[in-house]
Design a binder for these strands. Structure first.
Lengths: 253, 253
DNA sequence: CCTCGGGATTGACCAGGGTCAAGTTGAGCC
DNA sequence: GGCTCAACTTGACCCTGGTCAATCCCGAGG
């Protein structure tokens, strides 16, 4: 690390896990500094992908896990008949690609919802490193387990009887994730389309659109295309539980 | 195998992974014989649990993973308000408990649907062994990944618009799992209640009951309480795709 | 034998949300 | 500027599946 640092060194620096703002949310969480450097050797240069471009698709051979550094992606499965099911929306710090561990092939697809940057973790390298660093191995298991738990949440949300509850829970959990990223958790930017949201929740797009309008009328949200401001987080939390709000008072226009 | 085998030796033999009929479906899949013996050292004596008894509940400290040897269990989450979501039904050869890897506490509950026997894999021991046997480590990751994929299937099923499609897919996938177990895949025994099935699919119990009746009328199934015979697997497969069957002919009566 | 009770089935009713169709908005492009 | 297209919104309609309630079934227990 001589003082004559040039541009390449800078990119090198930004690449490293130890200097990454996301490190506590990502794989490095709880890993010692020396081991972190080993982990760095498993990270291939990050790459940037455009909105709509595909990170991996169904059937692709398993080559790497991917960490979202910035931007966002959606993952989904699609059956022979073309039925799509959106599995998740992935924000910075989240790791995707675990579906391929079972069969060495991806069985889902990951697509960027906006221009995003990605850290690629070639699995062969990662395995070498986890072999040397038991803590990393444990952390990797923990991250997959988080994925399992996240899907439990998704299932519990879809199981709700009331559509409004579902959407409220979706927005609430998005707000929670914003908070972890230390963003303003009341000002959401929905990088995914209404269609994606609807599919994610097991609804149709018209229902989602109506629900946004209704929640705006109720004063819970302020919706403007992709930007959603949560005006009453307390009411939103209520909607997560009951679906319907407190009995309508004599409505004032 | 001398003829003088006594009961204790027999139970010993049956405990070992190498002699287990499920080994190819379970953790041992693809593990060499010598390594299998090491794996055996991580398996605590199997235990038998009765219908309704709980293997682990929400908040329990993470102690072990569990393999279903015989019988069946359900897993579910429950929120503060008491809303339950059934996550899965687990047949022999399946491993549960991964939800606790993330936080060292279980965040779901596992309950026996009938008298079942369980292999317990204390995680501390298992980690020692996976440290020595890289192939086992990989296999463990594969098994968790299968869990992730299974949940993708569950989500895709719940996302369906038609309740009949959902139930058809549920039965079909159960039949597929029977086949892997080399059971008769047309004679299902539903160890779970109608309530469990309904909750699993995001429906209410009455709907499930009506669907069973309807599919029986259609000649697809023969339903008798917990036993379901699939009379027309071909039609069942159709229902998985379309939800509705061939257009109704001129209805007689 | 009868009763009891939980699970399951069936019917009647109805509303939440799906379907279809029209209209609006805004970004990109000529 | 106006055109086009996709994403989104809104309205009208009505069907699927949820709700409520009665009944049935079967095993357990007296």
């Amino acid at each position: 690390m001589d003082p004559g640092t040039n541009v390449l060194d800078l990119s090198q620096l930004r690449r490293s896990c130890s200097s990454c703002a996301l490190s506590e949310l990502c794989l490095p969480a709880g890993i010692g500094n020396d081991d972190l450097e080993r982990l760095d050797t498993a990270v291939r240069d990050k790459r940037t992908i455009d909105r709509g471009s595909v990170l991996y698709r169904d059937g692709d051979p398993f080559e790497a896990l991917y960490v979202v550094r910035s931007g966002s992606l959606k993952t989904f499965v699609q059956d022979e008949a073309g039925n799509v099911q959106v599995l998740g929306f992935h924000l910075p710090g989240e790791i995707i690609g675990f579906d391929a561990l079972a069969s060495d092939r991806h069985v889902s697809q990951a697509e960027a919802l906006e221009r995003s940057s990605i850290c690629e973790l070639p699995y062969a390298r990662l395995q070498q490193v986890t072999g040397q660093v038991p803590a990393l191995h444990r952390q990797l298991m923990r991250v997959i387990s988080r994925e399992v738990i996240e899907e439990h949440r998704h299932l519990a949300m879809m199981g709700r009887q009331q559509a409004q509850e579902q959407l409220a829970i979706f927005l609430k959990s998005l707000a929670d994730r914003y908070q972890r990223l230390q963003r303003d958790s009341t000002a959401l930017t929905l990088s995914m389309s209404r269609y994606d949201i609807a599919n994610y929740l097991g609804l149709v797009v018209e229902t989602v659109s109506r629900l946004f309008s209704r929640m705006e009328e109720m004063g819970v949200l302020e919706v403007n295309r992709k930007s959603v401001r949560i005006r009453r987080p307390d009411l939103l939390a209520d909607l997560c539980r009951s679906g319907v709000m407190a009995p309508k008072q004599s409505g004032a226009g």
